[in-house]
Nucleic acid binder design. Structure first.
Lengths: 110, 110
DNA sequence: GACTAATATGAGCATATACGCATATAGTTG
DNA sequence: CAACTATATGCGTATATGCTCATATTAGTC
């Protein structure tokens, strides 16, 4: 069940690509904005403060990576988080960073 | 306890940077090689098939990000995984990718 | 069909970063 | 201290990618 075999080169590239998708602040901002549910592009543009073109591009990247899902409704396009593992991923990274800072703080403080 | 506040711009950059560190196949290969414990640079060079210079650089990136720890012993330098959350991160991403492919396979298969 | 609104995309520029080569540094041994 | 080993780093280059501006596309309204 739990495989511990080393990943193939191809698999490593896929995993790396996955991380790369999450390695942009604007994309993280979009993901965060979608934590409370589906939103259309304009809303996301407003909430993130990005330009329409840029937001659209980033949404495309996230959608192609299957992180987000896309639903068209008339003139508008609604995006939503499609990969639930994103929540955990963000939690994990945030937790890990917090620990790091706590340690840092301890060292600096005492 | 569980904070769901939107992260600040600075925090988002940190998280993004964290993901960026993991967004290189060679670095993932190094991490994977260290799953079974501490190893020195030469061993890692052999096991990953990279050049010494490149491996050394990537190890530096991973160490500065506190993903790896560094221990010097005479002429050799030993690296080891310092951030346990890495295991879960990789598991999560791999699991998510597997699911994706399963779905894909289902669609293609019938 | 003309007009408007919402979203996507092409082109160009600026920046980041991975890689290879050569060389520098740190530590060991004679 | 000279020679050697293990690791790190400076530099140049190639490539990738994010951003902006302008424009294209898609869909609804009169």
């Amino acid at each position: 069940m739990a495989k511990k075999l080393p990943l193939s080169d191809e698999a490593l590239e896929l995993v790396a690509r996955r991380f790369a998708v999450l390695a942009e602040p604007m994309r993280l901002r979009l993901i965060q904005a979608l934590f409370d549910g589906e939103k259309n592009v304009n809303t996301l543009v407003e909430e993130t403060g990005g330009t329409q073109a840029n937001v659209s591009r980033h949404l495309q990247v996230l959608t192609q990576a299957h992180v987000l899902g896309r639903r068209k409704e008339g003139l508008q396009v609604f995006y939503a988080i499609a990969d639930p593992s994103i929540y955990r991923l963000c939690e994990l990274v945030c937790g890990s960073l917090e620990k790091q800072f706590t340690k840092h703080a301890e060292v600096l403080g005492g």
